[in-house]
């Protein structure tokens, strides 16, 4: 990544900076707020771009590389743009036993994308997720913040109709 310009922090809004500073306040050092800061930026922008990453690193007084190492470690920090809602289907073993693959295949077909991709209209990004702790209602998935379970290929149609 290229060298940070001094005015780089201006990439972040005052709201973002204030929210990040508020996190730093109850931590022993600035770096400890790294994950919180990335989440704040993502809350305002949907994802963490190279520019916002550099600006955040500067605010936290750490190197871009160190912050990027953290950002790319965590599955819920997005370093690429994502759709308005992320569709996270569980691909862990209990859902798999209960027909999770069929649900995944129907999702791919419905949204016309592969896991990791975003629909052309920018509405949905499809991602697998670790066991959602809803195994007595497998298969399960989340659409944005909403949990859906006891899924069948057919029940997906209704969920997306209602979400539209």
């Amino acid at each position: 990544m290229s060298a940070v310009k001094n005015d780089m922090i201006n990439v972040l809004s005052q709201q973002e900076i204030d929210a990040i500073e508020a996190e730093i306040e109850h931590l022993p050092d600035r770096k400890s707020a790294a994950i919180d800061a990335l989440k704040i930026v993502q809350k305002y922008r949907g994802w963490v771009s190279d520019d916002s990453l550099r600006a955040t690193a500067k605010l936290l007084e750490m190197s871009d590389e160190e912050l990027d190492g953290i950002a790319t470690f965590y599955s819920l920090i997005y370093r690429h743009p994502v759709g308005e809602k992320v569709v996270m289907y569980c691909d862990s073993v209990s859902c798999w036993i209960m027909g999770g693959n069929k649900v995944r295949d129907r999702l791919k077909e419905k949204l016309q994308i592969e896991p990791g991709q975003t629909t052309e209209d920018g509405k949905y990004t499809l991602l697998p997720v670790t066991c959602l702790g809803d195994c007595d209602h497998a298969p399960a998935m989340m659409v944005g913040d909403d949990l859906h379970h006891d899924l069948t290929p057919e029940s997906l149609d209704k969920i997306f109709e209602e979400d539209a």
Binding site: S92, V93, S94, T130, C131, G133, D134, C135, D136
Partner: peptide, 10 residues
């Protein structure tokens, strides 16, 4: 709570 098959702490 992410151990596959575990749904109790929730």
């Amino acid at each position: 709570e992410m151990e596959p098959g575990t749904f109790k702490d929730r």
